[in-house]
């Protein structure tokens, strides 16, 4: 069987494209970095990842310019028929700015706003814990058990998922679109610092679309995929549970391929 093939997009200013590509390869997929101005045919890819960084130097608002790039139209066309799309950090901001997340209406429904953090204003880098918010399986959470705690770093200045639409969060909960929430090291979801590093509503760390083939996640699983990457863990090459996001993508693609 052919390996699942992932395109990792690079917009000017992104800076996590290499390690994101490497994690796809680490779990047995093919992956390739595609520049924003590339003429490459995207239909040959099974999934897409928009990595972290500062696309277009966060001009105007993080993610808003990349969201309007031509290549995003092509990506949207590809994922319309169920291909995978993951946005990590700046990638998550871009997905919110395209309206693909949460994707209930054909417009932008949320924002990823500047952090509210009592220690550091602006860019904040720290290790946090996240866990599944519901038991519905999608393309990215296949291997997680309920209450499984994932240690993963956040590194952003604008990571606070918010919305003006009072009913939206209720809908997201009902649709089981909130995938990961920030929790403490015992798994308790409490909306306070440092458990919630940025003040996101409902401790949201990751949201998917209703169909579950698109996900926006603020923390960086590609930086927490092996034990040696995780502070104070026993340093070895064993995989950690954050890498299961990539493993899940692989399995989903393999199982859903015709």
């Amino acid at each position: 069987m052919q390996k699942p093939k992932i395109a990792v997009l690079y917009f000017p200013g992104n800076n996590c494209e290499e390690e994101t590509r490497d994690r796809c390869i680490d779990v047995g997929m093919d992956a390739k970095i595609i520049r924003w101005n590339s003429k490459e045919n995207l239909s040959e890819f099974d999934g897409f990842i928009i990595p972290g960084g500062f696309s277009y130097e966060d001009r105007i608002r993080a993610g808003v310019i990349a969201a309007k790039e031509k290549i995003m139209d092509k990506v949207e066309k590809e994922v319309d028929n169920g291909k995978l799309l993951l946005g990590i950090c700046n990638g998550a901001q871009i997905l919110v700015e395209t309206g693909l997340i949460p994707g209930l209406k054909d417009k932008v429904e949320m924002a990823v706003a500047p952090n509210i953090n009592p220690l550091v204003s602006g860019y904040y880098d720290a290790w946090v814990y996240i866990k599944l918010s519901n038991n519905k399986k999608n393309a990215f959470n296949q291997f997680y058990k309920n209450n499984e705690i994932i240690k993963v770093p956040v590194a952003h200045g604008e990571g606070r998922f918010i919305t003006k639409d009072k009913n939206l969060i209720k809908k997201l909960i009902k649709n089981k679109q909130i995938i990961f929430q920030y929790c403490d090291n015992k798994g308790k979801v409490e909306n306070k610092y440092p458990t919630n590093p940025n003040g996101a509503v409902n401790n949201i760390a990751a949201i998917s679309n209703k169909e579950g083939n698109i996900m926006a996640i603020m923390p960086h699983p590609e930086r927490a995929s092996f034990n040696w990457q995780v502070p104070n863990s026993i340093k070895n090459n064993s995989k950690t549970n954050a890498i299961k996001i990539f493993e899940s993508m692989k399995r989903y693609i393999e199982e859903n391929k015709l």
Partner: peptide, 17 residues
């Protein structure tokens, strides 16, 4: 920590300590 938590310390995914 107020200083280094303002810096990206694990971009590139190579940081061990």
């Amino acid at each position: 920590e107020k200083c280094y938590k303002h810096y990206d310390r694990n971009v590139m995914g190579n940081s061990i300590i």
